[in-house]
Design a binder for these strands. Structure first.
Lengths: 255, 255
DNA sequence: GATTACAAAATTGTCAACAATTGATCGGGC
DNA sequence: GCCCGATCAATTGTTGACAATTTTGTAATC
């Protein structure tokens, strides 16, 4: 249970089994972590040769790593043009959060059924470390631990499929945040995590589910995902709206 | 809405956006369809050169297609050994069905909220064609249409993330069936599908969810997934059991 | 006769050179 | 002065050959 923590963050879900060629896995993980830490701005082009040089690997390795990132929708691949960091539409963001509510609810429900005291203790320890990171001012680490809380909870209930799904959702979320942020720090609230654990420990399904749902909704609330609120969908549409020539839209466009 | 039906089955979920190099997509789809039709026995080795010859493409193309199949857990990749059709453990099968219950429930819930008459009519038509296929004795086609019903329902509610997840679950299921079948034909019941649609049309969330849950549970019931009931996990164990020398298992093994 | 060491075949993994496509810059024409 | 077409650089896509690893078959030895 302590084996999965390879370089600061586990590759919780899928594609963690057979590291065909190690190198690919390494490049993939690095890029994935960069996305999780919000270091990669949506729209940035990822050039094969550049990455190959940076990681000291062959272009073929980079190519495969990028192909994997594409499947997770972390990058988009324009044929003969290159791959670019994905910039999810508002609709995609909504779908992501909607799905997340359902899946986190399922996980919480299973947690109430199956989590023993030892598992709960581990999760509580995680929240403590998260709190410590916040207190210490290391906001980036705190954010990572906040993510890890959700991932660890999912993994603790022992359903690999649901854990992998949540992992994918959470991995895709930072790009949505970057593309549609409204307020300042889109981090989790410490107390929320603790309350959820308490409800699970008390075997109160309804309360645990409600708290988690509220928690996720709160996260989503900090984003500008409402229909028409943010530059809608198509990348070209966004560019057009950026000039304010919104046709019949009386200048509601952002900026 | 009639555009997604490229070669008999849509690639509902992810990885359908940018077909980098078309060829890869083609090989991937072919293999994926073969899995869905239960034509690929778990454990079979998929040799790169063989597939390259069969599809008339380069080995690199096959390589990438296989990499994608691996992410979907349809094959397992043993470094320096090759890739093999996955043979999911009973535990994995349980996780799959457990997750499926939650996700189908979520989809049904959204369907009650968002499906209009037109969408319902399309789904009813699909069930009709499924019934026709059964009546016509084309069991393979009927099974595919049964799968398509679930996939189409998911797509109709308009959440791409949930649709992709269900797609993944359903794609992985045939391998579980092959590895752990108990009874004869593990197909969906026609009437179940119709009843679910009726409940959705009547906007009866509870009933729709209950019916769907029961439907999925029924599917799972035809498999031998209980703890200790089927040859547990390790592939070698399965091969041993195949000879009937089941040690203390008094000949309960398959065949 | 069984077991271990060795050798050969097959398969995967890696790599670098070549081809094709795209976007941009520059020049000419209207 | 503006617009259109061609050349040029940069990047991706493809291919084939070569290296490393594993498995299988064989032979010698205990």
């Amino acid at each position: 249970m302590s084996e999965g923590q390879d370089d600061g963050r586990m590759a919780a879900g899928k594609a963690g089994r057979t590291p065909s060629s190690e190198e690919i896995q390494r490049v993939f993980e690095s890029l994935r972590n960069a996305v999780l830490d919000q270091r990669l701005p949506p729209g940035l082009q990822l050039k094969e040769q550049g990455l190959a040089d940076a990681f000291g690997v062959n272009r073929a390795v980079v190519r495969q790593a990028l192909a994997r990132l594409e499947i997770y929708r972390l990058v988009t691949h324009a044929p003969n043009r290159g791959v670019f960091v994905a910039s999810p539409s508002a609709a995609e963001g909504r779908d992501l959060f909607c799905a997340r509510r359902y899946i986190e609810a399922a996980i919480v429900e299973l947690a109430v059924e199956r989590l023993d005291e030892a598992a709960l203790a581990r999760l509580r320890a995680l929240v403590q470390r998260e709190r410590a990171a916040y207190a210490g001012g290391d906001v980036r680490k705190a954010l990572r631990m906040s993510i890890d809380f959700h991932l660890q909870l999912a993994e603790s209930v022992g359903n690999t499929v649901l854990a992998a799904f949540l992992d994918e959702i959470i991995t895709r979320t930072p790009l949505v945040v970057l593309a549609h942020r409204r307020e300042s720090p889109p981090a989790c609230m410490l107390s929320d995590h603790e309350d959820i654990l308490d409800a699970i420990a008390a075997r109160d399904v309804e309360r645990a589910r409600a708290l988690m749902s509220e928690h996720v909704a709160h996260l989503e609330g900090r984003l500008a995902l409402d229909r028409g609120e943010s530059p809608e969908d198509d990348d070209i549409a966004r560019l057009l709206a950026l000039d304010g020539l919104g046709a019949e839209d009386g200048g509601r466009g952002p900026r």
